Each structure stands twice: as structure tokens, then as C-alpha cells.
Measured scan of single mutants.
Amino acid sequence: NRRVIAMPSVRKWAREKGVDIRLVQGTGKNGRVLKEDIDAFLAG
């Protein structure tokens, strides 16, 4: 159960899209999950 680094707005975006943010690979600094990462995860 790893800790995910993400801005609150990104966490909210993931929740709205029904995405478990822990499954998303972050591409930002220090592995931070970005809004673009959520979109890419949804795109496959």
C-alpha cells in the first residue's frame, strides 16, 4: 500500500473519473501523479 504523491485537485479528478489513483504511474517530480497521468491511464 504505497503512498501516492498527488495534488488534491488531481485526487479529486481521479475520484470523478472512477480511477484508483494507486494504480496510476506518476510521471511528475518524485513520481507525482499528474492530471495527464490520469487521462493517459484512462486512455489505456
Rank of each mutant, 00 (worst) to 15 (best):
L42T: 06
K35Y: 06
T27P: 00
K12E: 13
R2E: 08
L23T: 08
K29D: 10
G26F: 01
K35T: 05
I5M: 08
N30G: 13
R32W: 08
N1Q: 13
V33T: 04
R32F: 06
I38E: 01
L42M: 09
T27Q: 04
F41H: 07
T27Y: 03
N1E: 12
R22I: 05
V24H: 00
A40W: 08
N30S: 09
L34N: 07
E16Y: 11
A43G: 09
R2D: 11
E36A: 13
I21L: 09
E36N: 09
V10M: 03
L23R: 11
A43I: 12
K17Q: 13
F41Y: 14
K12R: 14
W13T: 15
F41K: 04
T27L: 03
T27W: 02
V33W: 01
S9Q: 10
G28Q: 02
V10A: 06
N1L: 10
S9F: 07
A6W: 04
G26L: 00
K17V: 13
T27S: 13
R15V: 14
I5G: 04
R15M: 13
N1I: 13
N1M: 10
P8S: 10
I5S: 07
I5V: 12
W13H: 15
P8K: 13
L42Q: 06
K29T: 10
V4G: 06
N1K: 14
G18I: 03
V4S: 05
V10F: 03
I21E: 00
V33R: 02
R32D: 05
S9T: 08
G18W: 04
L23Y: 11
L42S: 07
F41T: 04
E16C: 15
L23D: 10
M7D: 15
R11S: 04
A40S: 11
W13L: 15
I21T: 02
G44F: 13
T27K: 05
P8I: 10
S9L: 07
I38N: 00
V33S: 01
R11E: 09
K29L: 12
T27V: 01
R15K: 15
D39P: 01
A43S: 11
A6M: 04
V10W: 03
G28E: 01
A14D: 02
V19G: 01
A40C: 14
V10S: 03
R11P: 13
A14I: 02
A40G: 07
V33E: 00
F41L: 07
K17Y: 06
N30F: 12
R22C: 15
D20Y: 04
A14G: 03
K12D: 14
R3L: 11
M7G: 15
G26P: 08
I5K: 11
G28C: 02
K35R: 12
I38W: 02
R15F: 13
R22T: 11
D37F: 03
F41Q: 04
L34W: 03
E16A: 13
A40V: 09
R2T: 11
D37K: 00
Q25I: 14
R15E: 15
V10L: 05
K12W: 11
L34A: 04
K35V: 07
A43W: 09
E16S: 12
K29Y: 10
G44T: 14
V33D: 01
D39E: 10
N1T: 12
V24G: 00
K12N: 09
G26W: 01
L42Y: 07
G18K: 07
V4Q: 06
D39K: 07
E16I: 12
Q25R: 14
M7Q: 13
L34D: 04
N30D: 12
V33I: 14
G28D: 02
W13V: 15
R2P: 11
R11D: 05
E16N: 08
V4K: 07
R3H: 11
N1W: 04
V4Y: 05
E16D: 11
M7Y: 15
V19L: 05
R15D: 15
I5N: 10
P8M: 08
R15H: 14
E16L: 14
Q25T: 14
K12M: 08
K17F: 08
R22S: 10
A6K: 03
K29E: 11
E36S: 14
R15W: 14
R22N: 12
W13P: 11
R3V: 13
Q25K: 14
T27M: 04
R3K: 13
G31A: 05
G26E: 01
G28S: 03
R32P: 01
G18L: 06
L42H: 06
R22K: 11
D37H: 01
Q25D: 10
K35I: 10
E36T: 11
R22A: 10
G44K: 14
G31K: 06
A14T: 01
E16H: 09
D37V: 03
K12T: 06
D37E: 01
G26Q: 02
R3D: 09
I38H: 00
K17T: 09
V10P: 02
G26C: 01
I5H: 08
D39I: 11
D39M: 09
K29N: 10
I21V: 05
G18N: 09
R32S: 10
A43Q: 13
F41V: 07
I21N: 00
A43C: 15
G31S: 05
R15Q: 14
I38G: 00
V24L: 06
A40Q: 10
N30W: 11
V4F: 06
D39S: 07
F41A: 06
G28Y: 00
V24R: 01
K17S: 09
L23A: 09
P8A: 13
R11M: 09
K35W: 07
G31M: 05
E36F: 07
G18D: 06
M7F: 15
G18H: 08
D37T: 01
A43N: 12
R3F: 09
R3G: 10
W13R: 15
M7P: 09
V10I: 07
V24Q: 01
W13M: 15
G31D: 04
Q25G: 07
R22W: 09
K17H: 15
G31L: 04
A6T: 06
R15L: 14
P8L: 08
G44Y: 13
P8W: 09
D37W: 09
V10D: 03
A14M: 02
K12C: 15
G28L: 00
R11A: 06
G28K: 02
I38A: 01
A43E: 12
I21Q: 00
I5C: 15
